[in-house]
Design a protein around this nucleic acid. Sequence first.
DNA 1: TACCTCCTCTGTCTGCAGATAGAAGCGGAT
DNA 2: ATCCGCTTCTATCTGCAGACAGAGGAGGTA
Lengths: 219, 219
Amino acid sequence: MIRVAVVDDQELVRSGFVVLLGTSPDIEVVGEAGDGEEAWGLCRRTTPDVVLMDVRMPRMDGLEATRRIMADPRCARTHVLILTTFDEDELVHDALRAGASGFLLKDTRPARLLDAIAVVAAGDALLAPSVTRRLIEQFAALPSRPMPPTADGLTDREREVLVAVSRGSSNQEIADSLHMGYGTVKTHVSHLLTKLECRDRAQLVMYAYESGLLIPGSS
Amino acid sequence: MIRVAVVDDQELVRSGFVVLLGTSPDIEVVGEAGDGEEAWGLCRRTTPDVVLMDVRMPRMDGLEATRRIMADPRCARTHVLILTTFDEDELVHDALRAGASGFLLKDTRPARLLDAIAVVAAGDALLAPSVTRRLIEQFAALPSRPMPPTADGLTDREREVLVAVSRGSSNQEIADSLHMGYGTVKTHVSHLLTKLECRDRAQLVMYAYESGLLIPGSS
DNA sequence: TACCTCCTCTGTCTGCAGATAGAAGCGGAT
DNA sequence: ATCCGCTTCTATCTGCAGACAGAGGAGGTA
C-alpha cells in the first residue's frame, strides 16, 4: 500500500486527485494540504511515501515546501512528485534542485499518474516527456567527460600531479600525498608546463578546468 | 500510424518485439536489422518514425548507428529509442549524446514500451525510471548559474583581478591590461588571498571555477 | 643485449609571488 | 565636516616556483 499526500490550493483539483487515487487498490490517501506550510506539517505527522505537490500556492509555494520536506530527517522516506500546469525550464530546474523525484504536468493521463506514483514510491524518478526531452538536450550539450579527458601526451603520473596542482596543492604537499620527492614533483610540473604550453601552475589549473579534466563541483 | 524499425542482433528478441508491436493498432513494423550497419541502411531506405535500438551488436554497435542516423539528413524525422539490458551511467551518457530520444531497459513492461514509442514518435523523450533518477541527481549537483555568481565580500576591482588571475595572467600582465600599477595588482591579489582564504594564485584559480565565477568553455 | 620511455632524484640559479607596512586621493555616509 | 571603505601606489624582504642540466633504476620492446 502506497501512502500518498495531496497538496494543492484549489479544493476542486485536490478532491479530483483524491477520487482518482481512490480507484487504485494500492494507494491510500493519508492527507490533504492547501499550501506549503500545511504540506510540511502534514508530512511531518503522516510521513507519506509520496507527495503530489502543486507549485503555485499561497503562503509557501511547493518548491520551498519540497526543500523543507527533503531537509527534514522525519520525512526521510518521503518522495515529492511535482504536479503543475506550467512547463518552464526554470521551474523544472528549481524543482529538481529542491529534491523532487518527479515532475509531471497536470494534463497527464490518469493511468500514467498512478503509474508515476508507483515509480516514485519505489525510489526511482520520472519526468513529463517534454521535460525529459529538454533535460536531455541540456545534458547532451554539457562538456562530455570521456571525450576530452584530454588524452594529451601526458603520462599517468603527470596527470596525477596535474590534478593535485589544480587542487591548489604546493609542490611539497604533492610530494607528500603522492609519495615522491620534492624534486620529482618539480620535474613533473616542469614537464606539464612544457607539454601543455603553460607558464605557471595557475595556468595549469585553468587548463585542467577548461579541458574538462576537472569539473567544478565534482571534487 | 507509427512506423517502427526493430534492431537487435538476437533473432528471438527481435521477433518478440515484432509480435508485441503487432498487438498495437497504431504501430507498423517497417523493418528489422541485426547490427548497426544494417540498421543505418534500413533507416535510410524506410525512414521509420521510431527505431528500437539494441546497444551490444556485432560489426557496429547501437550507439554508433544512432550517431550516424541522427547525422543523416535523410533520417531527419527518425527518433531512436535505446533498449538495453545494461543500466550503466556511461552507456546512458553516450546514448543521449549520440542523439537518442529515449533509454529503456529490456525489463520494461510491454504496455509501457508501447506508450514510450508513442511519446518518442511525438518528438518528446523518455527514460527508464532508474535512469531518470540518476540523471536528476547529476543534474541537481551541477553548479546552478544564478546562485553562486559569488557575491562574496569582494569589491568590483578585486573581482576583475580575480578573473584575470584565473586566466593565467601574471601580475605584470594584469597591471597592463587593467591599467594599474604592478604594486596595486599585488595589493589586490593579497586581499583576494586573505578574503578567500587561499594560499596562492593557483588556489584562486580553483576557487574561481568551483564557485561558478568562471565556467569552463565560457571564456 | 640494446634501446626507449617513464619515474625517480639531485643539484644550482633566477625571479616572480606574496607578506607586511605605510601613505594618499576619492567618494559616500553620518 | 568627518569618518570609512575602495583604490591607488611605494618599498622591503622571504621563499617557493620554475628553468636547466644531469643521472640512475624499472619496465617493455625489438
